[in-house]
Design a binder for these strands. Sequence first.
DNA 1: TTGTAGGCGTTATCAT
DNA 2: ATGATAACGCCTACAA
Lengths: 349, 349
Amino acid sequence: MPSGSESPLGKATIFDVAEQAGVSIKTVSRVVNNESNVRDATREKVLSAIRELRYKPNAAARELSGKRSRLVGLVYENAQEFNYLKDVLNGSLDACEARGYALLLCPITLPNPDIAARIREFVTQARVEGIVLPAPLGDLAAAAALLRQLRIPVAAIAPKDPRPEEINVSCNDGAATCSLAEYLIEQGHRAIGFIKGHPGHGASAARFAGYRRALQRHGLAFSAALVRQGYFDFDSGKTAASELLDLAKPPSAIVASNDDMAAGVLFEARERGLTVPRDLSVVGFDDTQIASRMWPPLTTVRQPIVQMAETAARLLIDKLNGEAVQSPDEPFECEVVIRKSTAPLASIT
Amino acid sequence: MPSGSESPLGKATIFDVAEQAGVSIKTVSRVVNNESNVRDATREKVLSAIRELRYKPNAAARELSGKRSRLVGLVYENAQEFNYLKDVLNGSLDACEARGYALLLCPITLPNPDIAARIREFVTQARVEGIVLPAPLGDLAAAAALLRQLRIPVAAIAPKDPRPEEINVSCNDGAATCSLAEYLIEQGHRAIGFIKGHPGHGASAARFAGYRRALQRHGLAFSAALVRQGYFDFDSGKTAASELLDLAKPPSAIVASNDDMAAGVLFEARERGLTVPRDLSVVGFDDTQIASRMWPPLTTVRQPIVQMAETAARLLIDKLNGEAVQSPDEPFECEVVIRKSTAPLASIT
DNA sequence: TTGTAGGCGTTATCAT
DNA sequence: ATGATAACGCCTACAA
């Protein structure tokens, strides 16, 4: 019977719904927030009123009153190579959308003299309830310390040192690197070079360990001479390859800890007139877009980054909503992608 | 004299500031919002109280009361190639940060059966005041119509059909393509292939026009046989190159409308045993990261996308704040980047 | 199970 | 130029 002057254009408030349903605003609030203690019949009445009026809770009022912003922050390294972030973004956004949260971005350009100040500014200004923190930022001492101090929930993606009280999502990139190296060994390669990733990145150590494990399993001696430090970027890969290829006994295959460095290796090989994979096998890691566009297309490893990010953001939001969440028991699985940058060792010797 | 119990932890409200400064909250509000009609001395008092108390206006309360969310949306195509978006993101974020706005993301995967619904949902749910709209989304009829209907201010980046009542930011990519083609002509090339970009993208027509202009200027006949339709992606570039190279009289140089397609051309050339640039010169457009990592590194054009996006977002926000803004009079300048995928035509004939 | 009252921090109205 | 007071729409007590 009651029928105020509900404005036709999606401007209905909780009062309009209450009137339409013939209940109090509190009851509407209960229904909207999925609280218990509402009789099914009442709930239905309210629900249909909500539908009719196209009622959407006012986010500002909700935040002002309830102290919850429904905002999650993504604090990330604003690197040149952006494909990793693209996936992180898509995964995080999916989770946020599904749960009615919005995602705010906080790019950080490294090196940065005062990361802590930037993050603090972000957290206080943007009023985010929690933070998704993809590697390698979580492993920066300054960032980690601040976040701990701020007592803001964090979901770390591929952290080096997972904090047990927080959410952590990882993948088994060590095992994948091991598979990759074993694949090369099975192809007859014995002298296999390795280019490490950025030392501040948790994955670097894991991938290196995977490489050593492969050698060990096949009874091959590890030689530090075949290992070079890289930094996940094209130039460091090129430099490392140059040193490796200058060796008196250069490797017949090189494992780069990511695709960008592998691209550098390919580039260096080209400059020396070497043909890949005939003269040198090369593998990367990440299956970034560049991997399939180079010549030859790169044998590499694909990580389920979208899924990892989605999981991280989803668990984070659930935690913010008071649910007792746990980090995944098992790391996510990586997938080896064989392309054309690898070939059996020509047994000419 | 007055000194309530200001909580030490950045929780000061407008009342605390008013008390500290000995004025009413309305005056504080005036100062915070840069309104006139405040005596300088009063303003100073308030300002110093704000500093002392580290007062930050509560965004939720502001929005609830003032109807302004200080949120801007970025509606973009969620494409594989993400470097373009990376720059758009950085530029937009810069402008937002500088003006106290936050940026919300609305990725759209194409093709999408109901773009309009998605955008409408975003605008109403995310309560953004305005939208930054990078190409090619602005040129999709469905999106354009909806945005017009929603009456929400839009800042378009590189639109095909600029709407005079909105903000539009572009660059002279037609002229740049012309320079690129002229460069090839000066290198002795006469049969120059062209791979068009996605027809829905405004830049495609501009770049094609630039190519034709270059031919015209140098008195070269235009041949439709040397032109192929591409879609800005690697595969379409590869296919187009294949067709072009199958011609009885194949071109000695190919202009691809972007780097991804140029990468496809390079790939195809490799598969045919052609050496670039000895047997074929290739140029791209965008100077994406891949351009400098390929072999040979690509001659291409760099667009100031970060600047364009920053300008678009800045003008949009200024407009939202009631300022009388105008789109830039001049398009932004592109820069030709000469690398190693081009060489003078070997005059063997 | 349901409803009433008060407050969240700001901006807007209308005085003064 | 400045101030008192009423919205803004919702949520959290607390009552019934």
